[in-house]
């Protein structure tokens, strides 16, 4: 596997306060990366710095040798798709909502190629019946799929997802994460997602980045996810066991001490 994205010495300040300092990591094509860490540690901030929704003070984000932080916003949007935690609805069909993802590629008006790409993604995600449903009548799971489909029709090389499963039930969580993993493998792109659920991360991610005190505490494959690392990052002792061949993280005691 080849390195496709490398983040070097990324620093972000909010009102003279360091939020991120010296962030550095690299990721390979075809991998799903989970960004982990406690609330307020700057996971979402990191994600937003990668496609310059927030402007880092210094550092670089190299995607295939190009520094994203020096590109124009439309150029970034043609390379990086972003799925925020909160998606607004409106009186739009799912097809129109996904078509919006072609925005970075559209000149004056949509072409038949744009429409065909949108049509294909609905087939790919098994969402054909939803094409002409209004998104303000959709469930949380359906809406999340629409948001992911919208980011995918941007034809990105990297997909950034901010807690893609935070408002979903268990079945939808598994479905969405499976979909993300499939797409990443099929198209040989990379996905970086912030997550809270360590168990879901262990099941669906290939690489793990733990953030603590504004820097990368540790990153690597699933072997770095150990009770000592989790305790250092979250301040909570945990046990890791196997259940039916699947690794599970549970708190060591109920009162958290």
């Amino acid at each position: 596997m080849t390195t496709m994205l490398s983040v070097n010495e990324l620093k972000f300040m909010y009102r003279n306060k360091d939020v991120l300092r010296e962030i550095g990591f690299s990721i390979e094509q075809g991998t799903v990366v989970a960004v982990l860490g406690p609330n307020g540690v700057g996971k979402t901030t990191l994600l937003k710095c990668l496609n310059r929704i927030l402007k880092p003070r210094k550092g670089s984000v190299l995607l295939d040798e190009e520094n994203l932080l020096e590109l124009g916003t439309m150029d970034i949007a043609r390379r990086v798709g972003y799925v925020p935690q909160r998606v607004e609805t409106g009186r739009l069909t799912a097809f129109d909502a996904v078509l919006l993802g072609r925005r970075p590629h559209i000149g004056w008006d949509v072409t038949s190629r744009d429409l065909a790409i949108v049509d294909a993604i609905f087939t790919k995600l098994g969402m054909e019946p939803l094409r002409l449903s209004y998104i303000d009548e959709m469930s949380g799971g359906e809406l999340q799929k629409v948001a992911i489909a919208r980011a995918l029709v941007q034809e990105p090389k990297v997909l950034l997802l901010d807690e893609p499963t935070s408002n979903l039930d268990l079945k939808n969580q598994v479905e969405i994460l499976n979909t993300i993993r499939e797409i990443v493998r099929d198209h040989n792109i990379a996905a970086i997602m912030t997550m809270h659920d360590l168990n879901q991360a262990l099941r669906f991610a290939d690489r793990f980045i733990f953030i603590k005190d504004g820097t990368v505490h540790i990153h690597g494959a699933c072997d770095i996810v150990t009770p000592p690392v989790i305790e250092e990052v979250y301040g909570l002792p945990v046990m890791i066991g196997e259940l039916g061949g699947v690794r599970c993280v549970v708190p060591a005691s109920c009162n958290g001490t």
Binding site: N51, I53, T73, A77, R86, L100, A147
Partner: peptide
């Protein structure tokens, strides 16, 4: 019109789509 559609979908979505 595309920029306004993007802003309707939320500021962050719009920024992710390259809209200033």
């Amino acid at each position: 019109r595309w920029n306004y559609n993007a802003i309707d979908a939320g500021d962050e979505t719009a920024q992710g789509l390259g809209v200033s």
